[in-house]
Amino acid sequence: MKKNNFSNPELSNAEGVAAEWVARVECGLSDKESVEFKKWLSASKLHEKAYSEMKWNSEELDRLAGFHAEYDASVDPDLLSRKRLLPRDYNPNMDWRMWGSIAAAVIISVSIFLSWKVGNGDTGVTKDEAVVVERIASLDLEDGSVIQLNREATVDVAYSHKERLVVLKKGEANFKVAKNENRPFVVEVSGVRLRAVGTEFNVRYDERSVDVIVSEGVVAFASVADYAGYESQTNERYLEEKQRVVIGLDEDVSEVDIEVVDEEKLGEELLWQPVLIDFENAPLSKIVAEFNRRNPVNLVIVDDSSDDTRMTSMFWSDNINAFIRLLESNFGIQAKWGEDGTIYLFRK
């Protein structure tokens, strides 16, 4: 290991170095130390992982300070004292090596303690409290239309005998509209009015814009302010199949550009929609990559041996939590949630 300020030869591996960095960062780094830290962090992905894990474990110590141990692990209660580990009135001239070694030793001990707890179905961060990736919701409406709601999206449905009105209040939704020329299907979102007869289109609404892509059929769009009533559809413009319009929230709807979207781009924009992940004799990494591609989640296979697992899968792409549960029950793989939401997979 290259020469550095860490004196304890027993802590020369990535975890040991990471633990000492955790202690140093907690009490503040000088400019020079910051540069040194960033250099070490970027030198290897192992360093990043080790640091993330040690940081998480360190923060668990705060929680454990009030925890009455029910297990046989013998931890000196004084070591759990925050003041001793991470003194806030710290003397900047104090020797880092001493504090770093103490912190590293405790953090590694607690890592082992917590790992044991994880193995026995109990952890500082339970799986239910950790990242829970919600499934995509699907609403089947009374007319046969279907709305798929991306995560955290909300809609109000207000059907009447004259029209089928849906208000997209937040997020992203995909609409598959059952054909009924006598009763137009209307989506209102942030002052924009979209009208469809029998079609499929996607609408994404965020703090900047309303983004509409048509997969099939035709969608008419206009400003809600220009809408003159059921009998009069004035100032409407038309989006055809594989066309897209992005309307800025302060933009004049009548002047926005319509763009053509190719098949590949269309697929990318609609990746969030659930599909069956259907592989035969595939390594775990391939299946994991597909889950990562289609979801706001980062599954990481930590050890090479986990990728020796080959499986046939037929699994909905948004059913991540069940996928992980079954990996644990039948494939000898354990999942651990990182503080940043990353889910690490490794052999038990």
């Binding site: 069956l276 035969e280 004799n281 020796d308 697992t309 080959r310 499986m311 046939t312 899968s313 037929m314 699994f315 909905w316 059913n319 069940a322 996928f323 079954l326 990996l327 039948n330 494939f331």
Partner: peptide, 21 residues
């Protein structure tokens, strides 16, 4: 088993993970 269990999943309408190894 690797083939027949997939057929089972299709007919049952369930998701499945099969250990090929």
């Amino acid at each position: 088993a690797v083939k027949t269990l997939k057929v089972f999943a299709i007919q049952a309408g369930v998701e499945i993970l099969i250990d090929e190894n």
